[in-house]
Amino acid sequence: MDALKSAGRALIRSPSLAKQSWGGGGRHRKLPENWTDTRETLLEGMLFSLKYLGMTLVEQPKGEELSAAAIKRIVATAKASGKKLQKVTLKVSPRGIILTDNLTNQLIENVSIYRISYCTADKMHDKVFAYIAQSQHNQSLECHAFLCTKRKMAQAVTLTVAQAFKVAFEFWQVSKEEKEKRDKASQEGGDVLGARQDCTPPLKSLVATGNLLDLEETAKAPLSTVSANTTNMDEVPRPQALSGSSVVWELDDGLDEAFSRLAQSRTNPQVLDTGLTAQDMHYAQCLSPVDWDKPDSSGTEQDDLFSF
């Protein structure tokens, strides 16, 4: 819950932080000083300027060897085509990944977070970031790969997607708890209302004896509580940590079903599988986004697919 609360507080303090972009060759504004600060901008989305290598189908939802083989196929196909790589912007948030063309600003792909089953910074092609997700059109699994400016960037994108998945799962947990509370309150309110109706004398007997209905007592009954809980029953509950912020979080049926399955089948359902080692994760978390744009010590960066 700490990640969720800190993310909400950060967004309320400075929503404009989320509009910064990394990996864009110096076009961005001043960047936060450390990885923790940038992680807090996830709610509205972190932007990464990358190059799209392509996509291939895979048979399993996750796995280092599986993704490595898929990336190898994608890279080989991209090299064989001889075409310049498409420059894209990857927007990562707890909602998922939005992929747009840098030149036309046209939407290429919009992947809900619950469809993503794996992401990684490839070991062999260490400047490549990739994720595996279920197609929104059918049940097939797709591996999408992107060329980053350097290994640090690939690791940073991988960690960002993993963190977005974690925050999304926490949102789901909060929403589920809130819905259970509202359902319980609604049920209790309905029981109270039913009890009051059972003990209320029939209207005919009131008229016969000349008694008047006590409207004041009726007004004191917990009807307002019942209506408050039943009027918006169809509205999706939102985490309290975000009250007053500009973010509107809505959970669709697909996300609810997917996270429910994860909660039942996995020990740590909030953790998205990645190909990063503990050492890689520690190294990337210690980086400032400013470091992502620094040239690798191995030599001059080449803006070309064939540089790796």
Rank of each mutant, 00 (worst) to 15 (best):
V111G: 00
K184D: 10
T274K: 01
N229C: 07
T56W: 09
D101R: 14
N211A: 10
P289M: 08
E301V: 06
E250C: 04
S67T: 11
N211V: 04
T89S: 10
V161I: 06
E178H: 15
G210D: 15
S260V: 04
C286M: 10
L17Q: 13
E257R: 04
A121I: 02
H137G: 14
Q60W: 04
L223G: 09
T149S: 15
A221E: 09
P269Q: 01
Q155L: 04
K51L: 01
A156E: 08
C143H: 07
W172K: 02
L4V: 14
I74A: 04
V248H: 06
A154T: 06
V92M: 09
L66N: 10
A284M: 15
E177M: 14
E59L: 09
Q197C: 01
D304E: 09
S14E: 08
D183W: 10
A284Q: 10
I116T: 01
T200K: 10
N229R: 07
A185L: 12
L147E: 01
I98E: 02
Q20I: 10
A76I: 11
L57M: 03
T77K: 11
R115E: 09
L85P: 03
I74N: 00
K294G: 06
R151P: 07
T38F: 11
S205M: 10
K84V: 05
F146I: 00
I116Q: 00
S93R: 10
G26L: 08
G45V: 14
A208T: 02
S93M: 13
T56E: 14
P202T: 14
D296H: 10
A228E: 06
E301F: 06
R27D: 15
G254Q: 07
S117Y: 11
R238P: 14
N138Y: 09
V247N: 09
T231K: 05
A258L: 03
A263P: 03
A133Y: 02
L159C: 09
P61L: 11
V161D: 00
C148E: 05
S112P: 01
G254H: 12
D37R: 08
L47C: 09
A195E: 10
E59A: 11
D303K: 04
C119F: 01
L287E: 10
K166S: 09
L103N: 08
I113E: 10
L147Y: 00
N232F: 05
R115P: 00
C143V: 08
K83V: 14
I71L: 00
T158Q: 02
Y131Q: 00
P269D: 03
L206E: 12
V207P: 11
F146S: 00
W292Q: 09
D198T: 07
C286S: 08
D214M: 09
P239V: 04
P94H: 02
L147H: 00
N268Q: 09
Q173W: 12
N105C: 05
S205E: 09
D2P: 03
T277Y: 08
D122E: 00
D191Y: 05
M233C: 09
T36Y: 15
N268Y: 08
A278H: 10
V75E: 00
T104W: 07
E178F: 11
A3D: 10
P32S: 07
D122T: 00
K5F: 01
R261K: 03
K152S: 06
N110A: 04
V290A: 06
T77M: 03
I12E: 12
D291E: 11
E170F: 08
Q240V: 04
Q187R: 06
L159H: 13
R27C: 10
I97Q: 00
S186C: 08
K127H: 01
K91N: 09
A263Q: 15
K91I: 06
I74V: 11
E44L: 15
K179D: 05
E142I: 10
T300E: 02
A278W: 09
W35Y: 11
E235W: 03
I108E: 03
M124D: 05
H125K: 00
Y283P: 11
W249E: 13
V161F: 05
D273R: 06
K72V: 11
T274I: 08
L107F: 11
L287G: 13
Q197Y: 07
A164S: 10
H144N: 13
T158V: 13
Q106A: 06
V167M: 09
Q264R: 01
S288C: 12
L90E: 00
R95Q: 01
V290H: 08
V58P: 00
T36M: 12
G26P: 10
G82W: 04
N229Q: 04
P201W: 03
G63P: 13
R196I: 10
Q240P: 12
R182T: 14
E301A: 06
G24M: 11
P239K: 04
L215A: 13
D293W: 02
I98H: 05
L99M: 12
A228H: 08
C119L: 03
